[in-house]
Nucleic acid binder design. Sequence first.
DNA 1: AAGAGCACATCAAACGTTTCATGAAAAAAT
DNA 2: ATTTTTTCATGAAACGTTTGATGTGCTCTT
Lengths: 330, 330
Amino acid sequence: MSRQQSSAPTMKDVAREAGVALGTVSKVINGLPVGESYRLRVEEAVKALNYRVNNYARGLKGGQTFIIAVMIPNLLNPYFSRVAHCINLELAARGYKMLLCSTEFDPIQEQNYVISAEQQKVDGIICLSYNPELEVSEDVPLISIDRYFGAKIPCVASDNYGGGRLAAEKLVENGCKNLAFLRIGSVLTNEPNKRRDGFINGCEALGVPYSLKIVDDGTPYSEFEAFLREHFHGGKLDFDGIFCVTDSLAHQIIDSLRTMGLRVPEDVQVVGFDGIRSFGDLEYTCSTIVQPVEEIAAQCVEMVLEKDRSRLPALVCLPVSYACGGTTKG
Amino acid sequence: MSRQQSSAPTMKDVAREAGVALGTVSKVINGLPVGESYRLRVEEAVKALNYRVNNYARGLKGGQTFIIAVMIPNLLNPYFSRVAHCINLELAARGYKMLLCSTEFDPIQEQNYVISAEQQKVDGIICLSYNPELEVSEDVPLISIDRYFGAKIPCVASDNYGGGRLAAEKLVENGCKNLAFLRIGSVLTNEPNKRRDGFINGCEALGVPYSLKIVDDGTPYSEFEAFLREHFHGGKLDFDGIFCVTDSLAHQIIDSLRTMGLRVPEDVQVVGFDGIRSFGDLEYTCSTIVQPVEEIAAQCVEMVLEKDRSRLPALVCLPVSYACGGTTKG
DNA sequence: AAGAGCACATCAAACGTTTCATGAAAAAAT
DNA sequence: ATTTTTTCATGAAACGTTTGATGTGCTCTT
């Protein structure tokens, strides 16, 4: 009856059980040098009581919490869930835990989550947000993916510009004579925006004509179908190669094309962006520019844990690659 | 010079700035009744100093931490990431945060994560693990998905038995005369195991012959191809309807069938399980038994937050539904 | 064999909150 | 006007650790 059964055992309980002082228990728990006989007695007591360190007491002393907050827009999108997955692996390998939030692209939730993460005294934040309004504090190390907040917040992204250019090159290489670029969403006010610029640059360098169809976020998909129909005359499309800003859009476009009676890749070739694979790790769902998600994750984790923030670059740009997924001829 | 610039402001700082007592600040922060003039002064000071509550100090007093640990095997699998996604939404709506771990099906990681979550003093754990060895403590409320640990640990699952039966019924309804069930993995030592039993029950009730091919976890996929070839004579397969234990397996099987020159669904119809949709929310990737993931998540969250654990049922079984995804005739 | 030095266990303070007992001041009752 | 009640800010203790100062008992030196 000396203790409530319900409350978990504390270090004090362990100390009493082992007949040693509190500080001794602490040292044993933390692997600091301590007399062999003491160590044994403490370890026994720990087991006997099934003692677990209370991280809250630990964190209070101002030490590390070994938690990194990760913020992504949505877990249903395979690209984002893959990012989360890879970050989780990297963190776990280093003994860190991941406080994950999927914000549903909601600016309010995003802002709240940043505040919430600071309250939680996380050791750092990795943030994938396209919200241009997001305010981030500089008290907590923050690394951004795909979005450049300014020189003080390091940003990790894949080579979106190079990827856009690569898409153009690959389409031409496969025989396309007339290209189009399709994009939806304010999702692209940031680094991914460069996909368009790279694409244009590629087309111009190769001397290939191109069209652009870029619509705002929230625009219904039917706008793209309308665009396709506008360029559809006598059973033929004006272009024979389409670069879509994401695999997700590419997928929808391919459906539309097939519905219109066009064959992919025979009549029109399509390239997406992201490198999404079905069921996460099987074949590519379309020909695509593959983002190096593992490397992005590794880079973010390494950077967010870097103690000397002055050593961090403002922007890290990682190389993309091309993968044929059957919606191009090669 | 009175304080280090680097350390975050504390309640004491706010109290000093506002010229009130510590307890008063605490009350304001927590929305407890306090004199209007005091409230104003404190709120001003909070803003001036950009004060943030330290959750670690808060958690130390034994209160709630508003964090729920969620453990799933893998974030790349769309079913699991969808579970995580839905749980995240439910938790966020209730003001809770999610400490997410993807364990890669590794029993050691799973065990460590449970311990780690307890250390972190989370308010509860939602756990999706097929590891039969996993030991869970009863100090922290734990809800299991798809795996029955015993009467003391509530389990939430979809109606796997009913789903298996439904798969058989639908295949027969669409004209199949001869069925097969394919399963891989010890992944299915638990609730999902009932899919087989339900399927068998359905076949027997309908008087339809069936074959089973059930292999251990780790078995290479080629074993299934071999099985298909064994039952392939003169361009015809012994069965015209296949129920695969997951959509992921169904997908692979469909590929193999097509490679063998069989048309799906004309020659063979295939039904999977899970309800995976491409890109998370577009069309179904195959005909499938759809798990009610939103409901599973909602149920788990509601249960894990229930204060009176004695009121919790040992097993909650949620209804599944059938969706045609083009790999059956209807 | 005695003092210096060393190893190491103990103790107490501190971390930033919450909460409860205290007491002062204001309001109500007589 | 005085007592009683109510209201509400205050200050201190407590939560479970870590950590650096303190002190005890031992070993090594000469």
